[in-house]
Each structure stands twice: as C-alpha cells, then as structure tokens.
C-alpha cells in the first residue's frame, strides 16, 4: 500500500462524489443545492488537480486535463452564483440555479471520466 496512491485515488473519487452531491436534486430548486457543497467541490477539485501535476505518463496527462475541465466548470458555476447574488439585482432565482447546476453537471462528467480513467489504470497495472 502506497500513501501516494491512496491520496491520489481518494481525491479523485472524492471530487466526483462531492460534485454529485451538489448536482443531485431538482435542477431549479435552490433548496436542493447548498452553497457549501459547491465550495467543497471546488476545493477538492483544485486539490485533485494539484496532486495530478507532474505525472509524465500519458494517462497522467489525460487525468490532469479532465481535472482542469472540472475546475473550470465549478469555478464558472461559483462565479455565476456570486454574480447573481451580489452584483445583479435579480438574486438567485430558480432560473439562475438551473444554470449553475447544469454547469456543475459538466464538471460531473469530467470527474466521471477521471474516475473511469483511474479504474482503467488500476486494472491495467494489476499490482
């Protein structure tokens, strides 16, 4: 057992699960999507990205790419939320919430790809 492998897999899977936690629920119901969950998703996703840095294998670079995609989606979602909450007069309406959740859905897909790749790599290595 290798601590590096454990933390690597942990953060990748954690990023997916927490992202799913935010995504799950009615798409336009603000009560189903808590801001804390989005915050946690962003932090975990960023940490997962950093952990993937510096891996020179081919699969490593694809993993890094998926992680960067997830980061972009989640940050975009956070930006939309912040903009409508504080800058725009409309506030977070069900329409806005639908946009935020669908954007985070993109991150969810990226995170799923990441986990699939991780599983493939694990199966291939067989150690």
């Amino acid at each position: 057992m290798d601590f590096e492998r454990v933390s690597f897999a942990f953060f990748i899977v954690f990023a997916l699960t927490i992202n799913f936690g935010f995504f799950a629920g009615d798409i336009d119901n603000p009560a189903h999507h808590h801001v804390m969950e989005l915050y946690a998703a962003i932090i975990i996703s960023l940490i997962a990205t950093i952990i993937k840095l510096g891996d020179r294998t081919h699969i490593g670079s694809v993993l890094l790419a998926t992680s960067l995609v997830a980061d972009l989606h989640l940050l975009a979602a956070a930006f939309i939320w912040g903009y409508f909450q504080h800058v725009s007069d409309t506030g977070v309406t069900p329409d806005v919430m639908a946009t935020i959740v669908s954007v985070s859905g993109g991150a969810l897909i990226a995170n799923i790809t990441s986990v699939v790749l991780l599983v493939i790599e694990t199966v291939v290595v067989r150690r």
Partner: peptide, 13 residues
C-alpha cells in the same frame, strides 16, 4: 510542477 506541488497544495488548503 513537481517542485511546486506541495506549496500549491498548502496554499489551497
């Protein structure tokens, strides 16, 4: 990237 991995992690945390 390998070298600055730890500082970045600490910063984000």
């Amino acid at each position: 990237l390998k070298r600055i991995r730890l500082p970045l992690l600490l910063l984000i945390t």
